[in-house]
């Protein structure tokens, strides 16, 4: 069992067009590391030069913004759904 990560359009060139990826890890940063192994370049697209999440990238675990959890160190467990969403999408 693993975590499902939904991939937004701007990252699909790196994930060979996949819009969903399964990955395992007990925290979000571990999940991202594992995706990076399979899809090199993934991490640098969502992290800035200080290895922090880029300011225009939002990540959600089961619909909750990770800024309301523990950021990149938020826990993940089997069956969780992770969404990566551009911050500029939406807004009214």
């Amino acid at each position: 069992m693993s975590v499902t990560v939904r991939i937004p359009t701007p990252l699909r060139k790196i994930t060979n067009g996949l819009d969903k990826i399964s990955a395992s890890g007990s925290s979000l940063s571990e999940i991202i590391k594992e995706i990076e192994k399979n899809f090199p370049g993934f991490q640098s697209r969502i992290y800035d030069e200080n290895n922090q999440l880029r300011s225009f990238v939002n990540i959600y675990i089961n619909g909750e913004d990770i800024r309301f959890l523990d950021g990149l160190e938020s826990n993940t467990k089997s069956g969780d759904e992770v969404s990566i969403v551009p911050a500029v999408a939406g807004g009214n």
Binding site: P8, D19, Y60, G63, D65, V85, A89, G90
Partner: peptide
Amino acid sequence: DGNYDDVNRLCSELADN
């Protein structure tokens, strides 16, 4: 069911597909 930001996240994902 949710606040605007929840709906917005959902729609961002829908708009991708």
